[in-house]
Design a binder for these strands. Structure first.
Lengths: 345, 345
DNA sequence: CTGTTAGCGCATTCAT
DNA sequence: ATGAATGCGCTAACAG
């Protein structure tokens, strides 16, 4: 506990947290000089700088960012909204954002929307209250009220994961319809004809629906369709993939390949095959999406599409940092995807 | 874009972001009354409240929290430091924290330390700058400078995951040495005698070392020891578990059970067994730690210890919210663990 | 139930 | 290279 004296009338006031003025007094300079040293701004004599730095050290001074943000109306804060923490994809995005921000002293303020635009709206409101310099959203699905708020404030906006609609400012991601199309073409080229599909809740994950649509388009081009489908409620998981494939197969339709809404589900499907004694690829081929590590590590590497979530986050954050204000026109950054042929399809 | 007029000299100044004074003017009340309505504080006449709320709506007013925090010196911010986003355990903790905070309008400010106390120190400094009301740290391993900073500020502190040292204020977690001990006792009771161990970097994960120590203690009680060990660099992963078990077995020591530093590694080990044609449990038993979903979904459910990360985060956040200031004495909250006997050991 | 006064801690804009 | 004056937008502590 520090004890700093104030006032010339002999009264001693104890404050536990020193402020810039205390640093300045101890260093024998004005507050603004101390401020400049702390922020590494403007030309400062070497000797002065050192005295201020010593004072900072001695007092354990930590600047008050709320005051700084208010005075400078710049917060060095970036708001981030992700739909979920359960799906490892989004922590990956966060990692990318964090890496990009860490170097430049920015801080991420994170909110989780649970895939609900109304929750997104509430979080946008509460994040905007901190005057972030930019906002990173997931996808294009926002309420009108959200769009109005974003318009009122001058924050730069990035929308992540998708690129198939017109972004507010900048979109960073990949084309999910195209990914679905690629999956279909690949599997058709491989000779598969009897397609099954295992999905999770579309309300919870619009992008998996886009891939599904792309897949169907590819099949339609060859006069094919999806023979049997099964959907589970709520977020994707390995267990649900496993159970869903079991349910799908119980429908009794003859299938030679099953496409899954993502790798979690597909890994579950793989594990069902192992447990049920089905020869993966020969009896039944499997295809996922995301390129998770677990898929690679399976005894038969999962055939899937790899998307670089880390890079999506990193590039989005970098892009936002290099802009000084809202751009005049929209930018779309397609980070692409890679079809990884494993041993399951 | 809003257009508000200011000044009586006929000059029109356009501001894009309305402030409390604008709301007050439009509602025909004083700023402080508007402030009270917005914050839901104090007794306000129903009619007044409604007029203010309408003005807020009409202007799209969003309060400036930096100003609010400065004026009230309370931020409704909780700083959170986690070691990693790669390990799913920590997003789980974050979920718990988020759930607890969401209800009460608090916001989490998250930093990632990469298991490095010096990085933790830097992040603590930059988080303290925002005057958080509490800080959630992971583990007990902090630098002296970090401890000094925490002492200077009056923030409440929670330390998560471990409970085997004296916390600063409150610790929420489980006893890792005890978990290791339980693993050892269970396996010995099951008749296993020839123990192998597969671990990842201890510098990166002190808690896995504590479990290892507990395991060895249990073995020592029965005159046993660990026959062969293998460690990989860096964070744990399925791939590393798979490769590490392969390397361990190449050492040629006869083993009947292998304990892994966590489930990621153990799942990798399982997949190696499948690929190598080893009968899990009969040829080689496997044991993990964490209770991840993937372990349950394997054809042979992984034997492991389940820890409720979500609950750790939730309880810690709740505890911090219910405290108004730093408590006089330390509290340890043991959320315990459950040994889940699967089919691998 | 509502308003007045004052100031939170810092950074901007000009001076010197 | 350094400093003085001023205000960022809001809320605490009183009054009425």
């Amino acid at each position: 506990m520090l004890a700093l004296s104030f006032g010339g009338d002999g009264v001693e006031i104890k404050r536990s947290v020193p402020r810039l003025a205390d640093v300045a007094r101890l260093a024998g300079v004005s507050p603004i000089t101390a401020s400049r040293v702390v922020r590494g701004e403007g030309p400062i004599a070497q000797a002065t700088r050192q005295r201020v730095l010593d004072a900072v050290q001695q007092l354990g001074y930590v600047p008050n960012r709320a005051a700084g943000a208010l005075a400078s109306s710049s917060s060095k804060l970036i708001g981030v909204l992700i739909p979920s923490l359960t799906n490892i994809v989004f922590p990956d995005v966060l990692r990318g954002i964090n890496v990009a921000l860490a170097a430049s002293g920015y801080q991420a303020l994170v909110g989780v929307t649970e895939y609900d635009p109304r929750i997104e709206q509430e979080i946008v409101a509460s994040l905007l209250a901190w005057n972030p310099e930019a906002l990173i959203l997931t996808g294009f699905d926002h309420t009108d009220a959200t769009r109005r708020m974003l318009d009122n404030h001058k924050v730069r906006i990035a929308e992540l994961m998708e690129i198939d609609e017109t972004p507010i400012d900048v979109a960073v991601g990949l084309s999910h319809p195209k990914a679905g199309l690629e999956i279909g073409r690949h599997l058709i080229a491989k000779g598969y004809r009897k397609f099954g599909y295992v999905g999770h809740d579309w309300r919870a994950d619009r992008r998996s629906r886009l891939r599904y649509d792309g897949l169907r388009a590819a099949l339609a081009d060859h006069g094919l369709g999806i023979v049997a489908e099964h959907y589970s409620e709520g977020p994707s998981s390995i267990q649900k993939g496993r159970q869903s494939l079991a349910s799908l197969l119980e429908q009794g339709r003859e299938l030679d390949v099953v496409v899954f809404s993502n790798d979690d589900m597909a890994v579950g499907g793989y594990l069902h095959c192992v447990a049920a004694g089905l020869a993966v690829r020969d009896d039944l081929a499997l295809f996922g999406f995301n390129g998770l590590e677990i898929g690679e590590a399976l005894p038969h590497a999962l055939s899937t599409i790899y998307s670089d979530r880390f890079r999506i986050g990193k590039i989005a954050a970098e892009k936002l940092l290099e802009q000084k204000s809202r751009p005049a026109e929209q930018t779309i950054i397609d980070i692409g995807f890679v079809l990884r042929e494993g041993q399951t399809a």
